[in-house]
């Protein structure tokens, strides 16, 4: 097998992955002047203004909350699926993937219909004499949208690790006198950590940088880091600042990847799911 088959990809990679990255770096570290442009850290300095730090803080907070909720909801779900409560596991897995075949924007938009003042959820609540739920265009709606869209990314990797755990190990722990709680904390949980780590990464990264969910469910006034980048490129036309925020994002993500891979241990391939 020849290595020359790499050739088309190498050219493609350089043109469309490497060069664009350097262009982003170039715009991030320069500011336009009358004579062209000059090297500067001004774009980064601007990011540390309180207005923008607040945006970063809000993005980090919402992404962390959504990741936490996904983990709390997803881990038990993955455990049940890996256990023996269901016999047809392939169908279960498929059911987690199928919603992704519906356009992501439409699915998110459907929540508008559900959450509205006179939407389905409120009709149900009022008919039960419960108070109305009014979370549309708030933080909670954005978190809900994130959890809704990214939950499968948490469940699937955890499931795939849990289902591979040797049943004998779990039984052995029980035979040796550990109660179910200790079996979980001392055996199952540590063994499933790689799945948790990739799940957390798969949820946290898109949650941190989304601009669609916050735009649709958070209304117009809502700015997350993704919205800020979008604005700089499509509205304000300040590519330098937009690129600088992107560079900060890349660094943040690489940093969290490094921390994650420290915990992940021996898994060689980056899981896609």
């Amino acid at each position: 097998m020849k290595r020359s088959s790499l050739f088309p990809y190498l050219i493609w990679m350089i043109l469309f992955i490497v060069v664009p990255m350097f262009l982003v770096l170039y715009y991030a570290f320069t500011i336009p002047t009358e004579a062209g442009s000059t090297w500067s850290l001004e774009n980064f300095a601007r990011f540390f203004e309180p207005v923008y730090l607040k945006v970063l803080g809000r993005s980090l907070r919402l992404a962390l909350i959504s990741t936490g909720i996904c983990l709390l909801l997803g881990y038990p779900a993955a455990m049940v699926m890996a256990g023996n409560a269901f016999s047809r596991k392939n169908v279960l897995l498929l059911l987690f993937v199928v919603p992704m075949w519906m356009n992501f924007l439409l699915r998110t938009y459907a929540w508008l219909t559900l959450l509205e003042r006179n939407g389905a959820i409120n009709v149900l609540l009022t008919s039960l004499n419960l108070p109305r739920l009014q979370i549309l265009y708030t933080n909670s709606a954005v978190v809900l949208g994130m959890v809704y869209n990214f939950l499968p990314f948490m469940v699937l990797p955890i499931y795939s690790v849990l289902s591979k755990i040797d049943k004998g190990v779990v039984e052995a722990a029980g035979d040796l006198g550990a109660n179910p709680f200790r079996v979980f904390t001392k055996v199952v949980l540590p063994l499933s950590l790689p799945g948790v780590v990739s799940g957390v990464t798969m949820v946290f990264m898109p949650a941190l940088t989304t601009f669609v969910i916050s735009r649709l469910l958070g209304g117009g006034q809502f700015t997350l880091i993704g919205n800020l980048i979008e604005q700089q490129f499509l509205v304000v036309d300040n590519w330098g600042f937009g690129s600088a925020i992107s560079v900060v994002m890349i660094v943040l993500i690489l940093l969290s990847m490094a921390i994650m891979s420290f915990f992940e241990g021996e898994e060689k391939d980056v899981a896609l799911w």
Binding site: L6, L10, M13, F16, I17, V18, V19, P20, M21, L23, V24, Y27, M205, P206, L208, T209, F211, G226, I229, E230, F233, W239, G242, S243, S246, M249, I250, I253, L254, M257, V270, L272
Partner: peptide, 27 residues
């Protein structure tokens, strides 16, 4: 080296890939 560059578009936030390509095409 090749594998790491290959992972870049997978790991990068979508919006970063998007704006980097937009800059390239304008450029």
């Amino acid at each position: 080296l090749i594998m790491n560059v290959t992972y870049l578009p997978v790991l990068n936030p979508e919006i970063v890939t998007a704006i980097s390509l937009m800059i390239l095409f304008v450029f």
